[in-house]
């Protein structure tokens, strides 16, 4: 059997490719549900009529408040406004007890990264969805996929293991920041984005 040797090679190649392309991307992340479900769609609907800025706001000092605190939710939610079990749980477990929700932040960056929304949103006029994807009309929060090694979300690398064929907003690695900076002629150095 002269070709048997090549067969073992192909078996080795095939199993490694299967491991690398199929098994590894699954093993790499674990899936965690957000502590609470939230519907952007309901809140931004005409009936409720909230805008993005009601919860995600840029302060005078240039600091961005990405996650609303309970103080923002409380005025409306001292009593359940709808019928969902999730909202009832929200009122009972968070509003009534004065607890903050420990959201898992898809866009969370390492401690040494500095990012300010003010120049990007304010000066450059970049739309929120350019980096965060269109999520204002979603009815559910996606499960948070946490990288088992780095502990950051899958959103940082992006959904595709090769980083090919992805939407503009998918991926928040350093190269994503710097390629956009390059494309728009922003003078940059290490300290532009690191602290």
């Amino acid at each position: 059997m002269p070709n048997r040797g090549w067969m073992t090679f192909v078996v080795g190649l095939g199993s490694a490719l299967a491991l690398g392309w199929v098994a590894f991307p699954r093993l790499q992340y674990r899936t965690i549900e957000q502590p609470l479900q939230f519907s952007h769609k309901v809140h931004t609907s005409e009936a409720v009529g909230m805008t993005c800025e009601d919860c995600h706001s840029l302060g005078d000092d240039g600091r961005f408040t990405g996650l609303p605190s309970m103080a923002t939710c409380e005025p409306c939610h001292t009593e359940p406004q709808g019928q969902t079990a999730e909202e009832k749980r929200f009122v009972d477990e968070y509003v009534a007890k004065g607890r903050e929700i420990e959201w898992l932040v898809y866009a969370r960056q390492p401690e040494n990264v500095y990012f300010s929304h003010a120049p990007h949103v304010g000066l450059a006029g970049i739309a929120c969805a350019r980096c965060h994807g269109p999520h204002g009309g979603t009815d559910r929060l996606r499960p948070y996929q946490e990288n088992r090694l780095s502990s950051y979300s899958r959103d940082i690398w992006g959904p595709s293991p090769t980083r090919l064929r992805r939407a503009e907003w998918q991926g928040m690695k350093m190269t994503d920041c710097s390629s956009c900076h390059d494309a728009h002629g922003v003078r940059q150095s290490c300290l532009t984005c690191h602290k």
């Binding site: 000092d61 240039g62 003010a118 120049p119």
Partner: peptide
């Protein structure tokens, strides 16, 4: 440098 970043952000907000 973090103070520069904060000052830039403040200016950008304005």
């Amino acid at each position: 440098h973090s103070r520069w970043q904060a000052a830039k952000a403040k200016a950008a907000a304005a």
